[in-house]
Amino acid sequence: MNAIVEEPLRSATISVLVENESGVLARVIGLFSGRGYNIDSLTVAPVEEDRRKSRITIVTTGTELVIDQIKAQLDRLVPVYRVSDLSREGPHLARELALIKVIGQNQNRAEALRLADAFRARVIDATTESFVFELTGATDKLDAFLDLMRPLGLAEVSRTGVAAIARGTRTI
């Protein structure tokens, strides 16, 4: 059999260096929606001093073939400089930041604070009934922290999505 068969899914963290021009993010997102690819997370910001280049980091899930397609389709967009599959090209670091609002009193409040300390989350706002925690880390660490906060009065979350970079001397 040489046709496409059911393959295992994997998660890929893809960094895309793009010309910082209007519509470039719409091109990338349109490609994903138009061709039916998943976006698990997406971040974008200018990364060069003169702001001419932006870096988009996309976390996606698909079969190996689909992920290869995603990379090839991204690479053929005119304003794209480079596409890098960080999860395949060697060790990399991936971090996400979350701002987490927990509302509660008494026991729950004390417990939330203790757990935040264990996760090295910072308290960046507090009232007598609430905290806002700032937590940075890998996606699964954030997920774990949020799971713990849920019964303790988790009220609202704002996450940045993943920023990622290769370890060592390798650059995009």
Partner: peptide, 21 residues
């Protein structure tokens, strides 16, 4: 083409392995 080795010349890398490996 179940028994064939396939060679694919294309100018567009996104056409490689898109429908047929």
């Amino acid at each position: 083409a179940p028994g064939a080795k396939k060679i694919h010349l294309d100018i567009d890398p996104a056409n490689i392995n898109k429908n047929v490996v």
